[in-house]
Design a protein around this nucleic acid. Structure first.
Lengths: 133, 133
DNA sequence: TTCAATGCAAAGCTTTTGCATAAAG
DNA sequence: CTTTATGCAAAAGCTTTGCATTGAA
């Protein structure tokens, strides 16, 4: 299934799940558990979607995870990921442009927002001293 | 081997290898092949070093890879990684402070420099139109 | 109908673990 | 000596593949 030709329930369900979790990263395993589709289908679908650019694959705490790429390369936001609770925050503010501008101007480096993740501690965890492990 | 207490030849050799390849990402498999240490030791060492922040783990074309993080957690720089050639660039400029300040002030988000990686296309690849696949 | 996508189960990899042994301090 | 790190081999995980079957167009 290198390229997508037909639409199927399975793929739709996987996409629905990813949409419902736009702000989280899901592992392949989690997706398998949440969808009525076989493992092979999940992996095949995810890799087809990743190839298309519809989803992105990240490394979250050592484990590969997938997340909808609701933007294409041209959306005005970047991801902040909390190392404590795992939350993925979408930062939409205009600072991103400044950031891109800086790296492009001073380092000739074209930032790819869709892949970049800034790690740190989110407001909740920073305040409360962290919740989960 | 959660924490490192003793120094061993194996670990030294692994570190040497990583130093000799500061500007590349190596897979665990490659490292196994290039060092006289068992697989288990390589993995244990890499994960201990990653926990310490001495090395970073990336996802390079779908495969996890490791690379020396020649800085320590408290150094004034952030990493830029080229999605094209895989090069890891250390950006030392003061913009980092601005960046941290912004996220802390406007988003109450404490950036962790040692974990953050900004993806994009480096000057060489951007210019030449990319070299390797 | 036709051809792609699914599902299952097996195969292939990668990474982790248990335990006896070797090495560091 | 005491305690940690190593190595091996086995186990556990994750991802891919082959092939018959199902489902889309």
């Amino acid at each position: 299934m290198g390229e997508i030709k037909y639409n199927t329930k399975q793929r739709e369900e996987i996409l629905e799940l990813l949409k419902a979790n736009r702000d989280r990263c899901l592992t392949a395993r989690e997706i398998c558990g949440m969808v009525k589709a076989g493992e092979a289908t999940v992996f095949r679908t995810l890799s087809a979607l990743a190839k298309e650019g519809t989803v992105s694959k990240f490394l979250s705490g050592g484990t590969p995870t997938y997340q909808l790429n609701e933007c294409g390369a041209h959306h005005e936001h970047i991801h902040l990921k909390c190392s404590e609770c795992g939350k993925l925050i979408h930062s939409d503010c205009s600072f991103i442009e400044e950031l891109e501008h800086h790296f492009e101007k001073d380092h000739s480096f074209k930032v790819d927002r869709s892949k970049t993740v800034i790690y740190g501690i989110c407001s909740e965890c920073g305040r409360g001293g962290g919740q989960k492990k």
